[in-house]
Amino acid sequence: MDAHASVKPDAGAPVAPGVPAVHAVPLPRRPLDPSEPPEAEPCAPPAGPDARARRWYENDLGWAIVPGRPLRLLTGVRFDVLDVPAEAGAGALRHLAPGSPVALRGDRMELLVAAGSAEELPGLLDWLEWGAVSLDLRALGAGDALEAPVPPLPGAREAGSVRGAAVWLRPPGPGREVEASLPALPAMGREGSAPDLVRLVDTVALECHRARLRRACAGPQAALRRDQPLAFS
């Protein structure tokens, strides 16, 4: 029997007359060198600022992300948010611990507070005798989401590059250390470990009321001043 009779040509491959067909065998691969870094996937897209921001929130902070774009943070799990005028929030900064995160979005300030605070806010305002006063104050809690502020990461988009984008005035630290710095009610069993939510809400309500009165007295000029950039220490 011919030695080449059992060798079948590859499907679709032309075979020259009189030349025995052989299978195409790939060359042996070079052994891996453990000292060399692994090769990157040729089709993997480069990690952009949005991907780095998502990893920072999910991996470094452990915060829940809402699927889709823009990048949004789920509230009511690790934290709630008090959304107030920036001028009112500035008056309340002294009541916050140094590590308590605060974001700035245009003329609004977003104060992170303990999870569950949004549910307590209406009763707390009534107890502080602010319930009957119209205040420019709202809370984000369970079932809500906060558009993620631009994280303090190399390569992240600058705040001025996206109109209306929020930035961290006081960025959060890694891990669950953030929760220990958030304002909470003493009844939550965290008295002494975080600023008092009662004092913070009372201060924010007072500053919101004062800001409303100032705008009412100043008239149209107040709107012009609100368009000016704000700076806080």
Rank of each mutant, 00 (worst) to 15 (best):
D2R: 14
H4I: 02
A11D: 13
P14Q: 12
P14E: 12
R30T: 11
E36R: 15
E36G: 02
P45F: 06
P45W: 07
A51D: 14
R52V: 03
R54C: 10
R55T: 08
D60E: 14
L61G: 00
R69H: 10
L71K: 00
T75I: 06
T75G: 05
V77F: 09
A86S: 12
A88L: 05
G89P: 06
A90N: 07
G99P: 00
L104I: 10
D107N: 13
G116R: 09
E119Q: 14
L121D: 00
P122D: 04
L124M: 10
L128H: 11
V133P: 01
S134D: 15
D136N: 07
G143M: 05
D144F: 03
D144L: 00
A145I: 00
P151Q: 08
L153G: 05
G155Q: 10
A156S: 14
R157N: 02
E158T: 11
A159G: 14
G164W: 06
L169T: 07
R170A: 12
R176K: 12
E179W: 02
A180N: 06
S181W: 12
L185F: 05
P186V: 04
P186N: 05
A187S: 15
A187Q: 14
M188V: 01
G189P: 08
G189H: 09
P195C: 10
D196T: 02
L200G: 04
L200R: 11
A216C: 00
C217V: 10
Q228T: 08
L230N: 01
L230F: 07
S233R: 15
